[in-house]
Each structure stands twice: as C-alpha cells, then as structure tokens.
C-alpha cells in the first residue's frame, strides 16, 4: 500500500526562465535535455504536475484572493469523510490506495465520461497506468467538490495535471 507522498520541485530549464523567451538563454534542446533528466517511467508515476509562476512584488505584499487555508482544510476533511464512507468495510483508506480492480469499482464512469476518456486517451497519448491514475485523481477532485459522480471537468483537470512532455516545440 502506498505510504509516501513524493513531492519534488524542478526548474523549467537550466536558467530558470523558460518559457519567457525574452529572458531564457537556453536552446530548445537544452530545455529538452534538462526536463529529460527525469525519466519517463518516473514521470508516469507522478500524478500532479503544476507550473509555479515566480512571485511578483504585488503577490508578496497583497493578501492573496481565494480560499484561506482554514477553508481548504474544511474541504479536505469533507473529502476524507467521503472516502472513508466509500471504503467502509474494506482495507482501503484513501483514493490513492485503490488498485486497478478497485478503480473499476469505485471510479465508474457514465457513458458520456467514458467516451470523453476514450478520446483523451489517444489525444494525450496516455498509458494504461496513466489512465488509472487519472481516474483516481479525478475521483479525488470530485470528492473535494462534494460530487458523487466523476464529471468530464474532473477528468479534464486530472489529465491536465499529468506531465506528457512537450509535444509542440
């Protein structure tokens, strides 16, 4: 059973400014090589990749808009409650503990969502592992929203969090 949270920061390129081409001094192949230092199989096991923009002065002195940590905590606790209800009577505790069979049982998609995933599977060149992990992340996103079913937008967000490499440069 999974018992570690693997969280790791990384620069977008050797100089750190990519994709701001006015400041980035790296050649495209250098960016590629830099990102390529993390092997595909490892990336395939990372569920959530997000780009973090540099903080601007304004961001530092102004109070950020949006939810407070306390509010987010409430949502997380509610999502955890959903998960413990879902897995009551099983060995599972969180969505991340689900194996392939569990995913099929607990992350069942309606026809519309299934068609959506079928399309995205080929568009985003997903792997079988990727597919199952996306369903688990989408399940969690739905839990955080308090939604019983997994909707297209939940799937879309989970797909967007997967690192699929640069494909268009």
């Amino acid at each position: 059973m999974n018992c570690i949270n693997f969280i790791v920061p990384m620069n977008p390129c050797p100089c750190g400014h990519y994709p701001d081409m006015a400041r980035c001094r790296c050649a495209p192949y250098e960016v590629r090589r830099y990102l390529g230092r993390v092997s595909g199989p490892i990336l395939d096991r990372i569920d959530i990749c997000v780009e973090v923009e540099p903080l601007r002065f304004r961001d530092m002195i102004e109070k950020p808009a949006g939810e407070s940590s306390a509010q987010i905590r409430e949502r997380v606790l509610a999502a955890r409650k959903m998960q413990s209800d879902r897995f009551a009577g099983t060995k599972l505790r969180f969505n991340t503990d689900m194996g392939v069979a569990d995913v099929e049982k607990y992350c069942r998609l309606e026809e519309k969502e299934r068609n959506y995933m079928e399309r995205m599977f080929s568009v985003m060149h997903l792997s079988a592992r990727g597919y199952h992990r996306i369903l688990k992340v989408a399940r969690t996103i739905a839990d955080l929203e308090g939604s019983t079913g997994i909707r297209e937008e939940h799937l879309a967000e989970a797909i967007c969090y997967r690192y699929n490499g640069g494909q268009d440069i």
Binding site: P12, C13, Y18, P19, V31, R32, L35, C49, V50, E51, R119, M120, V123, M124, E152, E153, A156, E157, I159, C160, Y163, N164, G165, G166, Q167, D168, I169
Partner: peptide, 21 residues
C-alpha cells in the same frame, strides 16, 4: 479551464510547450 484547453488542444488550436504551458 482545463476542460476547454483540452478541447482546443484536441482540435489542434492550442499547443503545449515543454511543461504545462
């Protein structure tokens, strides 16, 4: 936003640079 970006990506109107850009 993810949903709309993915749709535009699938239809070829939007590209993705190295990373999530």
């Amino acid at each position: 936003l993810c949903y709309e970006l993915l749709q535009l990506y699938a239809e070829g109107y939007v590209g993705q640079a190295d990373g999530k850009y």
